[in-house]
Design a protein around this nucleic acid. Sequence first.
DNA 1: CTTGTTGCAAAAACTTTGCACTGTT
DNA 2: AACAGTGCAAAGTTTTTGCAACAAG
Lengths: 152, 152
Amino acid sequence: MGTPKQFNQMLEKLTQNGLRVTEQRRTLVRIFSDYEGYLSPRDVYNKMAKHYPGVSFDTVYRNLRLLSDMGLLEQLYFMDGRSKFKGCCLPNDHHHHHHLICLHCEKTVPVDFCPMEYDLDLPQNFQIVNHRFEIYGLCEQCQHQAPITKTS
Amino acid sequence: MGTPKQFNQMLEKLTQNGLRVTEQRRTLVRIFSDYEGYLSPRDVYNKMAKHYPGVSFDTVYRNLRLLSDMGLLEQLYFMDGRSKFKGCCLPNDHHHHHHLICLHCEKTVPVDFCPMEYDLDLPQNFQIVNHRFEIYGLCEQCQHQAPITKTS
DNA sequence: CTTGTTGCAAAAACTTTGCACTGTT
DNA sequence: AACAGTGCAAAGTTTTTGCAACAAG
């Protein structure tokens, strides 16, 4: 997940959409372009609070929502229902893909394989709208340190 | 999803685990053996309340949790994070499988295809713990009546 | 009778909303 | 100067917990 490139692209897209670039938003964008995994609203709030002791939760929520509506962030509900955000993979890489997700650090690795490209032998009468495919596990780093986190 | 067979199996399993069969639990089990899709805690509460105007939410929650811990119910967080439960497919059918899920009525169709059986060319160093594969769409019935519900 | 289960009430966690003030443009 | 964005406080949801009364075995 590129740092300066993604950072600038995200800020640009903000102004393109007629949004103002406040310090809070700049920080938010920084946080996500510096981190290649998922963060919960609370994680984000904590990171934000280091720069702005006075940030409020609702600002975090509002901006997370805004940025994901705008396509800058990807929101995912984990298997256990927790809401998480991460910076979207860059538009260049922006072909359809899925992710390996580390249960411990929640960083991700993109996977090109998509089950929908195969002949799934699905019932004819079911109209497909969408699908979801995620692989959960432990990345190399976390395999050594991690007490196994529960999956769901 | 069998009705009387599943109903009895579920009650049996309750007593096997040393749990008491209360009217509330009997009703809960009935609800799930009569319905082949996912229900939210609130859905369940509403259905329960028809039989027991005085049921409390916490009883619903407690029992949903108990029954899924015991393996009688399957809990799933949808793509939009909503928590849902459904009766587990019977032990006989209980080989690994995934589901088509109707976005409108939330009924399910099992799918035998599992992406993990293929050679996914994953990074060697990632230790897989778990995976998730779901296909969302509209079942035949709902294709005709349904105003498309948003997916996530 | 013993002990698990329930309903109530209250609280915790998470997310959203209204409003006056502030900071970007 | 105009108005989008922020912080605060308050409220809406969903889920959990403590406790006394109750009911299943």
